[in-house]
Amino acid sequence: MKGRLALVTLVLAYLCLLPGFIGQMKERPIEVKLGYQPHARVIRLVSGEFSPLVAEMSVVNLLFYYGTLVDKWQKNIIIRPEYMNMFRMLSTVSELDPYNQDAYYFAQAAFTWELGRVKEVNMLLERGMQFRTWDHWLPFYAGFNSAYFLKDYAAAAKYMQRSAELSGDTLRTKLASRYLYESSRTSMALSFLDGMIAREKNAAVIKTYQVRKEALQAVDTIEQAVLAYRQAKGGNPAQVSDLVASGLIKVLPRDPYGGEFYLDNDGRVRTTSQFANPDQR
């Protein structure tokens, strides 16, 4: 009887404590840890027939981790994400199960723009192409990366050609050439992002794409204004505020990465955030 009374009292006390406890647990610094992973060959040896499953679980873990990161970026809490571990984990996954598409797609999404690991990502994509021989997205990504980030147009054309062959979509080669020779880098990136957002399922990844897109749209707006300014005044504006002053832009767009836009000496649009989240600079 006494024991039951004690139990009831304790359970009630526990229930009283829970709301406050849960509330403060959310305040704590991010606890999601990726941790170090043993070498891929070791994991493959240990996991045996389950290595595709282990790869899959690693990706889930990674996406989950990435989700919490994005969550924290929104709230502007500065933490140190384990980028090296994230990338290592991706390459591990691609070795455990080279057919796992998540690894390649996620690498493209997370490591190119803000982190600038384009060469590594392209190497990973190359590896993927050897196995996922039917997948036209991998060469498409690699082509975009080569053109947009690396400015290696020859390589880009080769990748785009391959992508076009695989997808049977001849438009893609044309698209590629338009990208490469006609369009500005910004609109190239914007249409690439639109394609990515349309295909993506993971909410966190979509969120990052959207932030990027917002930034690029802002840049695009300012770039158009600079162009108009040049045509009207015959020279580059000194500051972005000149564009507002001359009525070419009503309100200066916001940098979603939290920086300030400015113009460099050549009149190109730059931002103090360098298009990266605080922890990635």
Binding site: G3, A6, L7, L10, V11, Y14
Partner: peptide, 19 residues
């Protein structure tokens, strides 16, 4: 909070074990 939570939780488990 951790101390409070831990103490209560362990106490609950122990009372349950005793019962």
């Amino acid at each position: 909070w951790s101390v409070g939570y831990g103490t209560l939780y362990v106490a609950m488990i122990l009372v349950l074990a005793v019962l």
